[in-house]
Structure formats: C-alpha cells, structure tokens
C-alpha cells in the first residue's frame, strides 16, 4: 500500500501541486494590495533562468542558486515597480502583461539562455537529494522503498516545508502593521493615503514580495524539470497562475493554495479531457466572476463554516 502510494507519478504531481501553491502565494501578495500584476510568469522565468545558469555555469550549489534567482527577480521588480505602480489597476495589469512578453523575447534572443532551444541538463533536486541520501548509506533504499522513492519524498518534504514557511510568513504579515496597510490600500487607496499610509511604499513592497516568491518558485521548478525554455513562461502560463487566485479566492491566502491544489490535480484525473482544459479554465473565469467574484474561499465562507461546525460540536 505504502509502496504504491509513493509511486513516483503521484510524487511528481505532488511536487507540481506544491510549486503551483507557492506561485499562488506570490499572486496573492500583490493582490493583497488590490493590484493586479500579470507579470508573474515573467518573474518566474527570471528566477528559473538565473538559478539554472548559476548552477550550470558557475557551479553554485542549488540551495544558494534558488534564493539568488529570487533576488534577481526582486531586482527587476524594483526597477519596473517604481514607475509601474504609479499606474492604477488596468494600466498596471497591461504593463505587467507587456513586461512578461518583453522578458520572454529577451530570453529568446540572449546567447546565454540558448534562445528557443532553452537550457537542458539542469541539476535536478531529485538526483541531488538522491546523492545525499546514498552518502548517508541509504543507496539501496529503505524499508522496501527504492532510492528514487525516498529522494522524491525528501524533495516533496522540502517543498512542503518551503510552502509552510511562506504560508506562516504571509499569515504573520497579514496580522502585522504591513498587512493592515495592504488591506487599507485594497479597500480604498485614496482613503488609505489620506490616513497617512505611504501607499507607494506598501504597493512596491507587495509587488517585490510577490516577485521574490515567483522567482523562487521558478528556480524550484527549473530544478525539478531538467529543462527550461522561453515557451514555459508565456501568456498562458500567466493566466494559469492567475486563475489559481481567481478560482480559489484572493482574499485569504488559503484561496490561491486551494485553487492551485484543485487545478493541478483535476487535469490528472481528467487526462482524457485534456483537450478541453483551456475551455474549462475560460468557463471557470467567467463563471467565478459572475457568481462568486471572491473565489471559493472568502472571509464569509470561513465564518459560515465556523459557525456551522461550531453549532454542530456544541450539540
């Protein structure tokens, strides 16, 4: 039972779920200030390429390269953030969409990124943890599990820990002064400004945090899939990340995570229907806006279930 549960196929899907959940957090953070940034795939690609190149060309260890990739995204976010965030909603959405396209075209043309051929042979997290585990004397597997399964589990655990840390950080942020400023800006930017909140500062902060997390997620995914190319980070990828938040809900951080979980698992259950995936995504976006603009999970849902469950337990 355990052996078949730990089938590498399921473990791999688990990894993609966790990466997408991390991306969900990144889009949640910018949305927390009421800003819609469609540049997440762009930041993801900056993180992925930086981390891949740092490990391949400079031999930097993976655990250093991935956060460095995140920092590279932050740097770019800082440069475009200041002018971009003077713009309001719609303009920002389109400008960041444009930013993603420009980044993609640049990666297509740089020599170091190998253009459309992409970068292959990226050191894989699975193999690396496998090596560490063999060094620890687990080379022949353990308890009936193969080395591949154990190292996959280890990677899954690492990703899970990263997700939990990010979640913890986001939740703490939400209850802090910063989080309250985010909420105030989201509710009414002019009013927030009138109350003495430095709206530009907080908007940029949210933008940068989102970019960092997207960059880290990009780095992680590069080291899980051996290969990256500019095609992996196009407009459709942006929409895919964005739909996690729209579907799950963007008022609470659990929303995008639930969205990522459901929308990554669903296609695997419906592999036969993969032809219709984009059609279903489109319909979801329209239906959510019409019927549940706040997404599956919002404060109200949480309150509703809490009182309902509370009542039942008191009986």
């Amino acid at each position: 039972m355990l052996n078949s549960l730990l089938n590498p196929y399921y473990l791999q899907i688990g990894m993609f779920v966790l990466i997408n959940a991390i991306l969900g957090i990144s889009i949640y953070l910018t949305l927390a200030t009421g800003q819609l940034s469609l540049g997440n795939a762009g930041f993801m690609s900056i993180g992925a390429y930086s981390s891949a190149l740092l490990t391949i060309k400079l031999g930097l260890p993976v655990y250093l390269a991935i956060p460095t990739g995140g920092m590279a995204s932050v740097l770019i976010a800082l440069i475009i953030g200041f002018p971009a965030l003077r713009l309001n909603g719609l303009y920002l959405a389109i400008a960041t969409l444009g930013f993603g396209e420009v980044v993609r075209v640049i990666f297509l043309n740089l020599k170091i990124t190998n253009g459309a051929l992409g970068i292959s042979g990226i050191p894989s997290l699975n193999v690396l943890t496998g090596n560490v585990l063999s060094a620890l004397g687990l080379g022949d597997g353990f308890g009936g599990l193969s080395l591949q399964q154990i190292s996959n589990c280890a990677v899954l655990l690492i990703l899970f820990v990263i997700l939990v840390l990010l979640l913890f950080f986001t939740r703490r942020l939400g209850f802090s002064r910063v989080g309250r400023a985010f909420a105030a800006i989201k509710a009414d930017e002019t009013a927030a400004q009138a109350m003495g909140i430095n709206t530009t500062y907080f908007k940029i902060l949210a933008f940068i945090l989102g970019a960092f997390i997207a960059g880290v997620a990009g780095g992680l995914s590069a080291h899980l899939t051996f290969y990256i190319g500019p095609k992996d980070f196009d407009y459709h990828r942006t929409v895919e990340i964005f739909i996690f938040a729209v579907f799950g809900g963007s008022n609470l951080v659990w929303g995008p995570i639930l969205g990522a979980l459901l929308l990554t698992l669903l296609p695997e259950f419906l592999r036969a229907a993969s032809d219709y995936r984009m059609m279903i995504y489109g319909a979801i976006l329209v239906a959510m806006m019409a019927f549940r603009p706040l997404g599956l999970i919002s404060e109200e849902t949480v309150r509703f279930w809490r009182t309902k469950l509370g009542r039942r337990s008191s009986k």
């Binding site: 489109g282 976006l285 329209v286």
Partner: peptide, 21 residues
Amino acid sequence: KAVSHLAPLISTIGVSIFLES
C-alpha cells in the same frame, strides 16, 4: 454587483481563452 473594477478584465480573459480553444 459591486465588484472590483478588475472583474470585467478577468471575465473577458475567460471568454478569450474559451473562444480560442
């Protein structure tokens, strides 16, 4: 409904990917 001014943007993105597929 009183929804965010971004809602129409999102729902038309939905229509666009729907029509494309």
